[in-house]
Design a protein around this nucleic acid. Structure first.
Length: 109
DNA sequence: GTTGTGACGGGTC
DNA sequence: CGACCCGCCACAA
């Protein structure tokens, strides 16, 4: 049992992102919950690093409000728009900068 | 060891 | 519905 929080915290985040089914999205809070923690903020930072950009569909992760949040380290800009476009392509309905909460996959309630 | 900040969350105004 | 504030954990300087 690690005395610190979790050296593999980010790794867990990536693992969960991979388990996100196509056409659906999840929230940072959900991931944090699934990890049995409350570091929703740390989750975002881990994804921001996203060394598995080609293995982890981080674009399927949105905020609890349904906002797409950010992408590629940018909270706004065409990068985010691209993320939205990708989600739409997967079948996720996106309005403005928000996705339908129905498409949000709640890992833990 | 302390400070600051963030791809956040929820509550309040 | 938008703006603001506080609280949360992890990480970098």
């Amino acid at each position: 049992m690690p005395k610190t929080t979790s050296p593999n915290f980010a790794e867990k985040v990536y693992a969960l992102c991979q388990k996100i089914p196509r056409g659906k999205v999840t929230t940072y809070g959900a991931i944090a919950r699934a990890l049995h923690t409350k570091a929703y903020r740390a989750v975002g930072q881990a994804l921001k690093c996203n060394p598995y950009a080609h293995g982890v569909p981080c674009h399927r992760v949105v905020r609890s409000d349904g906002s797409v949040g950010g992408f590629k380290g940018k909270t706004e800009g065409k990068e985010v728009e691209e993320k939205i476009k990708m989600l739409k392509k997967e079948g996720v309905r996106v309005e403005k900068y928000k996705v339908d909460l129905k498409n949000v996959m709640r890992i833990k309630v």
